[in-house]
Design a protein around this nucleic acid. Sequence first.
DNA 1: GAATCATTTTGTCCTGGACAAACACTTGAC
DNA 2: GTCAAGTGTTTGTCCAGGACAAAATGATTC
Lengths: 308, 308
Amino acid sequence: MIRENANITYSIAAVERDTGLSKDTLRVWERRYGFPTPERDENGERLYPGDQLERLRLIKRLLDQGRRPAALMKCGEAELAALLGSSETAAAGIDDPDFIARRDEVLGHLRAHRSSALRSTLGQAFMKQGLQAFVTDTVAPLNVAIGEAWMRGEIDVPGEHQYTEQLQNLLRAAIGGQASSNGRPRILLTTFPEELHALGLLMVEAMLVPEGAQCVSLGTQTPLADIRSVAVAGNYDVVALSFSAAFPARQAIDGLLELRAALPGTVAIWAGGCAVRNKQRRLPGIRVIAALPDCVSALRDWRVRNAA
Amino acid sequence: MIRENANITYSIAAVERDTGLSKDTLRVWERRYGFPTPERDENGERLYPGDQLERLRLIKRLLDQGRRPAALMKCGEAELAALLGSSETAAAGIDDPDFIARRDEVLGHLRAHRSSALRSTLGQAFMKQGLQAFVTDTVAPLNVAIGEAWMRGEIDVPGEHQYTEQLQNLLRAAIGGQASSNGRPRILLTTFPEELHALGLLMVEAMLVPEGAQCVSLGTQTPLADIRSVAVAGNYDVVALSFSAAFPARQAIDGLLELRAALPGTVAIWAGGCAVRNKQRRLPGIRVIAALPDCVSALRDWRVRNAA
DNA sequence: GAATCATTTTGTCCTGGACAAACACTTGAC
DNA sequence: GTCAAGTGTTTGTCCAGGACAAAATGATTC
């Protein structure tokens, strides 16, 4: 444990920022489930102790995996930790000894904030594997491992920043080096307004650019109307959207169908991420990408179908 | 005007996301100032028309410049626009014809979403000027110009994303190419928890790395306790913080003084950005960076003082 | 298995009151 | 003239507790 829980308390705004749970949600949980149970300052305002913040973070993480609050609230510390472990080990590459060694090396660097060592470890893996294999076999499972380590308190906020920072540098440089300005298809990458994590987009881009596609990333959180106008005006062939686990599935489906209706049929739509997994049936006219390597097959399918 | 205001309305959550004004603030403004005046749906929930959203964005922007709400609410459309123009033209380089030409080129690309043209325009400016001059003479005033264009509705969300995206690629690549792993001083770059914009940090890094300093960026929003522990454990010589105009000055000063007390005297603190401008007097033991080029002089001063 | 409906769970929104922190302004000391 | 301290006003955040729609679950049918 690096994090120091001491006797520090946190305001409701601080907890909202740290956990991603809205103030309204925090208050209503207290009313309904009897947790959390913050102290109050002399003015009646909530003060959350560090251990409750910790527990809220854990709960949020499990919610994002599809668990439901009422059940989680009753669990003890140990049960929560067990639940977390149970569902996340399914990621690929977990049993590859090369990956394990590299993972432990990275985690060690992050714990000690050795940023230049981190950079060279990541750089070496990249050199050895090439961009695409690096993304699928190293970065993707590493993200999971780091998420877990963060929940266990082994890694702190700066450590996590360090990781995304270095990885962004590496991926952007690699993508920039290979970018073509006239390849086909032209692909527009983005996410819907509620999405946050930029890293996922960067990973997809890293998979597609080496195949000769021309990717343009709009960054995260693009409103639907803007996606439409850019896709049409920019003469794109494909619009690719990414959805994290935290994104409500229903909203993703509705948004995708709406976008499908708004775009001309000549523009393909690809959707990837946990929120749309196994939803192909409900998404006619949209190509669902089940996992990172599949975006390469989607690209090849597109080329076969559009061979002129 | 590219944005289409049609008859679309926005929920309070959408407005919060788009403007950065909290739901509480939006409701209390309505109560106090009589603006905004959203319609209601059949269930009594607020629906903000597009033009009010537009106006709220403008107001937020002016708030970030230090104006106060009560005054702004009374203004007409034209007055608000005038206020915005009045305070931002002070940026350097505005009268340089080379800059003006480049600025108009960039704005044209952004309006039309020509991303590869944008990349090459930025890349050319970078090649011609070198990293440091590029940052001070092109990027800094360009940011201001783009902010203004965005307020005037000339540029949309994707356009702005496009710009930050391409600029990040360029700067990260340039920094990565020059990074040294054993230069002095070792500098830790970050911002306090409330800060958002990553571009500012990247710009500072771009100024310092060519001087042979060893920069490590923690990204944005690092808690104070974490800054302290990383700085000490990582054996840093300097901790550099960046504050945007939106950051409350009082909080910046208190935070800096607290950090100064928490760090050993051997670690220097540099602070830059609008929020701390002209506050050198109240910040003993902290080096205030008035403008981008000053971080180079701060670096030279440090070297003179620590010549062993 | 997959679609439809009823039921429960869950998050967001509402009102209107309260209050502290930030700000503008005045006063007095150097 | 500049700074520190004190006063009044503005402004954002927090609170309670009720309401309701959207999402998830389970039952039923095809």
